[in-house]
Write a protein that binds this DNA or RNA. Structure first.
Lengths: 167, 167
DNA sequence: TTCTGAATAGTCAATATTGACTATTCAGAA
DNA sequence: TTCTGAATAGTCAATATTGACTATTCAGAA
């Protein structure tokens, strides 16, 4: 239901069409979810069927008509419920990158170390990118802080791991 | 491909049947992935078709026959490739729980705070559970350390967030 | 001996997700 | 004016994932 919450929350701020929603999520909400375009359209269709959102065909200039989505009162109810559910509960993060670590004994410590140093560089770069994002207003800033805090902790941990494979 | 790496890595240590693999993953590798039973069987079937693993029907006592899976030389090649790929690359973590935070302005700071305090309790409990796990040997310990380090950083951040909604 | 509920081992139809494609518009270069 | 490649807006068939179910065995209680 997180993806639904995500879409409802955006539509709550303003009516939008699928492409627009996907663009926005890709640009500003990648830390929360990885939502592909086709999935976006699928979810919008589903939520429209359930009456959470309404769709209106609209055309602008010469462009072909677009489905513009708007949240319904029922959708607002669902949003309120999902929001409280989300805020009050905790979903453990999955570290898919750790799978390889579990099998690190399959190759030499030296090679593991070399590979992890590459990983570290990518992480460092991501951290720098996160730090470069200008300060946002409101609660969006919390997400940005989260990303930075998380990556800093990850780097500390990864350095310990690299150390572990350096003997 | 992470799920495939996960399964290949386990089968590399010993031949197993689907139920066994799923049990093991559920018990010891939940931090890495959330792999449902049905998906496990689907992936095993797929990898068998691709020749990464072989299946043998076996029976034990009165029980109905089971498909026992074993890694093939080709599967070992794939494992080696996937392992190096995994170790050298970095996949940003997705914080699905942050979606709600992005929309926190939809409800009062007081209620947000109350809800987040509940979340904090669940997180704290998870941390305590993580700390209670006895020390493992080898690289599995790295994953446990990771979980603890991560949760500690998360708590620090969440406390700042709760602070933010306490004014 | 019979019953019951947990553990074992899986299947299947419904649902969700994705990569790769189509089709149009538009801005600016040639 | 024509061409080209990026941006816009979406679709669709193939693939992956899941919840809810079936079916058997087994240990111990009654």
């Amino acid at each position: 239901m997180e993806r639904e919450l995500l879409l409802l929350g955006l539509l709550r701020q303003m009516r939008m069409y699928g492409y627009q929603l996907h663009e926005f999520i890709e640009r500003d909400l990648t830390t929360c979810t990885d939502l592909k375009k086709a999935t976006t359209y699928f979810l919008l269709e589903k939520m429209a069927k359930r009456g959470w959102i309404s769709q209106t065909e609209e055309r602008e200039g010469n462009r072909p008509p677009r489905q513009v989505y708007e949240i319904t009162p029922e959708g607002e109810q669902v949003f309120q419920r999902l929001l409280r559910e989300n805020l009050s509960s905790y979903t453990p993060v999955r570290f898919t990158d750790d799978i390889g670590l579990a099998y690190a004994d399959a190759i030499s410590p030296e090679e593991t170390r070399t590979l992890l140093v590459q990983r570290r560089a990518a992480m460092q770069q991501d951290l720098e990118q996160a730090r470069a994002i200008p300060v946002h207003e409101g609660s969006i800033q919390l997400l940005l802080d989260h990303r930075v805090a998380h990556l800093e902790a990850e780097l500390v941990w990864l350095d310990r791991v690299i150390e572990h494979f350096s003997k």
